[in-house]
Amino acid sequence: MQTDIDPRSLIGRKALDRNGAKIGTVDEVYLDDATGVPEWAAVRTGLFSRDAFVPLEPSDLVDNTLRVPFDKALIKDAPDFGVGRHLSPEQELQLYRHYGLHTSAAPAPPDQDFGTLANETP
């Protein structure tokens, strides 16, 4: 997705699936904790429905509409974590798996070799 878009400007926009079918309206945008880059959008899927999380990375903003490259059925079946709260790393991983997206490898464990003591000779 375009990185120069203000995430607040996505709120209230229509969201369409890969076939152009209306999914709903963007309610909230979630930013990556480390980078601050918009990562997920919560899309209200209907008047009495819930919000479904959709990934913003493979999505595009076309003619003021969020185009999500997944089928509407897959989006509606996404895990439901509620909105207005922080997504945990485990919840994000569930979402990535649901959409068949690759995640970056887990960080390497910290190096346990803290060096030699001052009075030791190398």
Rank of each mutant, 00 (worst) to 15 (best):
M1H: 06
M1R: 07
Q2F: 11
Q2H: 11
T3S: 03
D4Y: 14
I5Q: 05
D6V: 06
R8T: 09
S9M: 02
S9A: 05
L10T: 02
L10G: 01
I11L: 12
G12T: 07
R13A: 06
L16C: 01
L16S: 00
R18E: 04
R18A: 02
N19H: 15
G20E: 08
G20N: 09
A21M: 12
T25I: 06
V26D: 00
D27T: 13
D27Q: 14
V29F: 05
Y30N: 00
Y30P: 03
A34W: 08
A34R: 13
P38L: 10
E39A: 05
W40E: 03
T45V: 02
L47F: 09
F48G: 07
F48H: 10
S49Y: 07
V54D: 01
V54E: 01
L56D: 10
L56M: 14
S59G: 01
D60W: 08
V62H: 14
N64L: 11
L66Y: 06
R67D: 12
R67P: 05
V68D: 02
V68K: 02
P69E: 03
P69L: 04
D71Y: 03
D71E: 11
D71C: 07
L74S: 01
L74I: 03
I75M: 07
K76Y: 09
D77R: 08
P79L: 07
D80G: 13
G82K: 11
G84N: 08
G84L: 05
R85P: 04
L87F: 11
S88L: 05
P89D: 14
P89M: 11
Q91F: 10
E92Q: 15
E92T: 10
L93C: 08
L95I: 13
L95G: 02
Y96E: 10
H98F: 08
H98R: 05
H98N: 03
H98E: 05
Y99W: 09
Y99E: 07
G100P: 05
G100F: 06
H102P: 01
T103F: 06
A106K: 14
A106V: 09
P107Q: 14
A108I: 14
A108Y: 15
P109D: 11
P109K: 08
D113C: 14
F114S: 10
F114Q: 14
G115V: 00
T116I: 13
L117V: 12
A118G: 12
N119K: 10
E120Y: 07
T121A: 11
T121N: 11
P122D: 15
